[in-house]
Design a protein around this nucleic acid. Structure first.
Lengths: 117, 117
DNA sequence: TCCTTAGTTCAAAAGTTATTGAACAATTGG
DNA sequence: CCAATTGTTCAATAACTTTTGAACTAAGGA
């Protein structure tokens, strides 16, 4: 079983920007970037929202071509599609991640979400 | 009379990304970038939408801090806020503009909008 | 097999954004 | 002053997005 992903040449700039323009999704990308190389499963993002809500946001990221999700057992291992994004939109991902770094994280339950390396 | 603009430190990354994630607004920015240095008034964007609709999108760009609008007579002279964007989010604007360059322009009335330098 | 864990799907509700047309305001030129 | 030009505002509507909970599927371990 595999989940649907656009191929690299189908990745659309306005869609990528719109998808990154949501604070929850930007935080997900930021977290993925901080652990680049390590595939994460959905439950690692539970700080950022409920299970259903994350399922929704992670699907948006995947369908936009920002992330890749590999099905392994009952888990989805999620990674950034850095290779394809860099090829298609050089420098974009890095500048977004760098810019996101000195931006406040979303507040969940009254305290700032932690991103531990 | 002056129009409200955020100051540089109030410019928010998710808001900028969301604002750029609309095809009409991305086309406006692309057009501004192609004529950088030359202030444009609203009527130069009429290919991209109706007068009211452009007023709406140009206000979004201004309120997000992406553009600056100077009131001169009955015109608004619109420019990219490159200085502030570059300071706040280094490389972001350039990578977006470069990426937008090989992206289809929005269709208006059945034919692709022209960006003449 | 039964239970748990991981995540999806669905439908409803709430909220937000985009588009339109008609009416308005302000400036400029005749 | 009058008319034209430039652009805004308003209210309505349409369209989309986000969030939620309940129900579901699929895999893995006891």
């Amino acid at each position: 079983m595999t989940l649907p992903h656009p191929n690299a040449d189908q990745i659309s700039l306005p869609i990528v920007l719109a998808v990154l323009g949501d604070p929850t999704r930007l935080a997900i990308v930021r977290y993925l970037a901080s652990k680049e190389g390590v595939p994460l499963n959905c439950s690692q993002f539970l700080d950022l929202g409920s299970k259903t809500n994350l399922s929704y946001h992670l699907a948006k990221l995947r369908e936009a071509g920002v992330t890749r999700a590999e099905v392994v057992g009952t888990s989805r291992l999620i990674t950034l599609r850095r290779d394809d994004l860099d090829a298609r939109f050089p420098g974009l991902l890095d500048s977004v991640i760098a810019a996101a770094e000195d931006t406040a994280l979303p507040m969940v339950g009254g305290h700032e979400v932690e991103i531990s390396a």
